[in-house]
Amino acid sequence: MQTSKELIDLLDLKDLGENNFSGNSYTIGSPHVFGGQVLAQAVNAAYRTIPENRFLHSLHSYFLEAGDLTVPINYHVAEMRNGGSFSTRRVTASQHNKTIFIMAASFHQKEDGFEHQAILDPTIKQPEELLSWEDMLTQFGDLLPKSTRSFLSVKRPIEFKPVRVPNPMDPKDLPANEQVWFRLKGNHKNLDNRTKQEILTYISDYNVLNAAFNPNASAHNFGNTQTASLDHSMWFFRDFDFNDWMLFSAESPNAFGARGLAKGNIFTRDGKLVASFAQEGLLRPVRK
């Protein structure tokens, strides 16, 4: 999967009738289904039951079981409420007769109101100054740990450029934050708002837990720590497009008891705040 069209096709579920849908999976290098894929497919399912004049403004979800890459995921949408301004849906995802994921999502008709937003750091390095994951693989592939090299080798429809690149040969503790520029590959002109939100939801599950890892990066990494997304929430604010780089900016206020919390914002390159997110993940040291 290398282009936006392939990603859109992956997220576009098969309609089984009576608010039931089905979707397939694509690996990002993990033995289990990528959480961002399940999130985005659940958003696709919910949107199928929503009037055209309403847009997703928030979602709150829990990952209950690891997804199986080899069989379809079934999604059921329950219509919880249709009010004068808001519609609420509950989405349940299942495989092998077990619930693997649940999500509550709320949709709002457009209204006018007052505004303020967080400010994008004007001193942050720009994408042209940074190496992409593909660049890192090309330049340092032979020096990278096998697990990192394998992860970076997977073809993706998104290009990522981290603002800070740690040295895997000399790990050090780092500040509890993570900033990554990202850009969608392929032809992505004239995407509707629903599709853009589904894609952004998919991308939002990348890079999140790095912020929680960083303060203990000298001793802990994805190779010696069991990790999994436990929950994921998003709030959508302003319209946007994928014609330029966007910034994923996360910070971690806490890690304790084998769990780490990360939260943050997604900005356009010109500083428009389009979404915020929060996720708690499992960070369980592997006992030898």
Rank of each mutant, 00 (worst) to 15 (best):
N167F: 11
P215V: 11
Y206A: 08
R164H: 15
F236S: 04
N214H: 15
F240L: 07
R238Y: 08
P215I: 11
F160E: 05
V165I: 15
M169S: 13
M169W: 01
F222D: 02
H188L: 05
R183C: 04
N224L: 05
S233I: 00
K185P: 02
Q226D: 04
G223Y: 01
Q197A: 02
S229C: 00
N177Y: 03
P162V: 13
Q226G: 03
F237E: 04
F240Q: 08
L230P: 03
N224I: 10
N214C: 04
K161Y: 10
N190E: 15
L209S: 08
E178G: 00
T227I: 14
F236L: 12
L200D: 08
W181H: 03
W235Y: 12
F182T: 13
D241H: 04
V165M: 13
V163E: 08
D231C: 01
V180E: 07
D205R: 09
K161Q: 12
A219H: 13
L230H: 05
S204E: 09
A211P: 07
N187T: 12
R164A: 12
G223S: 13
F236W: 00
N207A: 09
F237A: 02
V208Q: 03
H188T: 04
F160G: 03
L230R: 06
R183N: 13
Q197G: 02
N193T: 14
F213H: 11
P162I: 11
W181A: 04
P166F: 10
S233T: 05
H188F: 10
N187G: 07
N190M: 07
L191S: 08
V180F: 05
D239A: 11
N207L: 05
R194D: 11
R238P: 08
K189L: 10
T201Y: 08
Y206R: 00
F237M: 13
A217Y: 15
S233R: 01
N187D: 15
L184M: 15
D231Q: 01
K172Y: 05
H232I: 10
P166W: 10
T201H: 04
D205Y: 03
K196F: 06
W181I: 08
I203N: 02
N167Q: 10
F240K: 08
D231Y: 00
R238G: 05
Q226K: 11
S204G: 07
F222Q: 05
F236T: 01
Y206H: 10
T227Y: 11
D170S: 15
P215D: 12
E178R: 15
K196M: 14
I199M: 06
Q197P: 01
V208Y: 03
I203T: 07
Q197C: 09
Q179K: 15
L184H: 07
N221Y: 11
F160I: 10
I203D: 05
M169I: 07
E178V: 10
N167I: 13
L191N: 06
S204Y: 07
I199S: 09
E198V: 09
Q179M: 14
S218R: 13
Q197L: 13
K172F: 02
S233A: 15
I199K: 10
M169T: 09
I203K: 02
K185V: 03
T195P: 02
S229F: 00
A219W: 03
